[in-house]
Measured scan of single mutants.
Amino acid sequence: TFVALYDYESRTETDLSFKKGERLQIVNNTEGDWWLAHSLTTGQTGYIPSNYVAP
């Protein structure tokens, strides 16, 4: 799992909003700078900017 370093507000319907400190499970990280992730807090799935999270 990864932890959010910053808050992120989604800009498209495929993005995932999250708050700093939220735990995220990475589903697919082969898309370059945008990873498909599942929030362990909200249960939602969407794309996140990879530079906003850390292991």
Rank of each mutant, 00 (worst) to 15 (best):
T1K: 06
T1I: 15
T1L: 15
T1H: 11
T1F: 15
F2Q: 04
F2A: 05
F2I: 04
F2N: 01
F2Y: 15
F2D: 00
V3H: 06
V3N: 03
V3R: 05
V3S: 04
A4Y: 01
A4V: 09
A4K: 01
A4C: 08
A4M: 06
A4P: 00
L5A: 04
L5S: 03
L5M: 09
L5V: 06
L5N: 03
L5C: 09
L5E: 04
Y6N: 06
Y6H: 08
Y6F: 12
Y6W: 13
Y6D: 06
D7E: 05
D7L: 02
D7I: 01
D7M: 03
D7G: 05
D7T: 07
Y8G: 01
Y8A: 01
Y8S: 02
Y8K: 02
Y8V: 02
Y8T: 01
Y8W: 09
Y8D: 00
E9V: 14
E9F: 12
E9A: 10
E9M: 11
E9Y: 12
E9L: 10
S10I: 04
S10Q: 08
S10P: 09
S10R: 10
S10F: 03
S10C: 07
S10T: 06
S10E: 04
S10G: 15
R11Q: 14
R11A: 12
R11H: 11
T12P: 02
T12D: 11
T12M: 11
T12E: 11
E13C: 13
E13Q: 11
E13W: 08
E13K: 11
E13F: 09
E13G: 12
E13D: 14
T14I: 11
T14D: 11
T14C: 15
T14L: 12
T14Y: 15
T14H: 14
T14E: 10
T14S: 13
T14W: 15
T14A: 11
D15E: 15
D15Y: 12
D15R: 12
D15L: 08
D15F: 13
D15M: 10
L16A: 05
L16T: 04
L16E: 00
L16F: 12
L16W: 02
L16H: 02
L16P: 03
S17Q: 07
S17Y: 04
S17W: 04
S17D: 05
S17E: 05
S17T: 10
F18I: 10
F18G: 00
F18L: 07
F18R: 00
F18T: 02
F18C: 04
F18P: 01
F18A: 02
K19V: 09
K19T: 07
K19I: 07
K19A: 07
K19H: 08
K20L: 05
K20E: 06
G21A: 03
G21S: 04
G21Y: 05
G21P: 00
G21V: 00
G21F: 05
G21N: 06
G21H: 05
E22P: 00
E22D: 14
E22N: 04
E22H: 08
E22Y: 02
E22V: 02
E22R: 00
E22F: 02
R23A: 10
R23G: 05
R23E: 13
R23P: 08
L24F: 15
L24H: 00
L24Q: 00
L24T: 00
L24P: 00
L24S: 00
L24M: 09
Q25G: 05
Q25P: 00
I26P: 08
I26R: 06
I26Q: 03
I26M: 06
I26E: 01
I26C: 05
I26Y: 02
I26H: 01
V27S: 07
V27F: 13
V27R: 08
V27C: 13
V27A: 07
V27Q: 08
V27N: 06
V27I: 15
V27T: 07
N28V: 10
N28K: 10
N28I: 10
N28R: 09
N28G: 15
N28T: 10
N28Q: 10
N28E: 11
N28A: 12
N29Y: 14
N29P: 14
N29D: 13
N29S: 14
N29C: 13
N29I: 15
N29E: 10
N29F: 15
T30E: 11
T30Q: 13
E31I: 13
E31R: 14
E31G: 14
E31T: 14
E31C: 14
E31D: 15
G32F: 09
G32S: 14
G32H: 12
G32D: 12
G32C: 10
G32I: 11
G32M: 10
D33F: 15
D33I: 11
D33S: 13
D33W: 11
D33N: 12
D33L: 12
D33Q: 13
D33Y: 15
W34F: 11
W34M: 13
W34K: 11
W34A: 06
W34Q: 07
W34L: 09
W34D: 03
W34C: 09
W34T: 08
W34Y: 12
W34V: 09
W35A: 04
W35H: 03
W35G: 01
W35S: 03
W35V: 08
W35K: 04
W35Y: 06
L36P: 01
L36C: 12
L36D: 01
L36W: 11
L36Q: 05
A37S: 02
A37I: 04
A37C: 03
A37K: 00
A37L: 02
A37H: 00
A37Q: 00
H38Y: 15
H38L: 15
H38V: 15
H38E: 10
H38I: 15
H38M: 15
H38P: 00
S39D: 03
S39V: 03
S39N: 14
S39A: 04
S39R: 06
S39K: 06
S39Y: 01
L40K: 06
L40C: 12
L40Q: 07
L40N: 05
L40D: 06
L40G: 03
T41M: 11
T41A: 13
T41I: 11
T41C: 13
T41D: 15
T41R: 12
T41V: 14
T41W: 12
T41G: 07
T42S: 11
T42G: 04
T42M: 03
T42R: 05
T42V: 01
T42Y: 03
T42F: 02
T42W: 02
G43M: 07
G43H: 13
G43R: 07
G43S: 06
G43W: 05
G43T: 03
G43Q: 06
G43V: 02
G43C: 09
Q44H: 11
Q44P: 00
Q44V: 07
Q44K: 15
Q44D: 08
Q44W: 08
T45Q: 09
T45S: 10
T45P: 01
T45E: 07
T45W: 13
G46D: 00
G46H: 00
G46R: 01
G46F: 02
G46Y: 01
Y47M: 10
Y47C: 10
Y47F: 12
Y47L: 09
Y47P: 01
Y47T: 05
Y47E: 03
Y47W: 15
I48C: 02
I48F: 03
I48K: 00
I48E: 00
I48Q: 00
I48W: 00
P49N: 08
P49V: 02
P49W: 07
S50V: 08
S50P: 08
S50Y: 08
N51V: 08
N51Q: 13
N51M: 10
N51T: 12
N51G: 11
N51E: 11
N51Y: 11
N51R: 12
N51P: 06
N51K: 13
N51S: 14
Y52H: 08
Y52R: 06
Y52M: 13
Y52D: 02
Y52T: 05
Y52S: 12
V53I: 09
V53L: 08
V53M: 07
V53W: 04
V53N: 03
V53A: 05
A54F: 09
A54S: 11
P55R: 08
P55Y: 10
P55V: 10
P55E: 10
P55T: 08
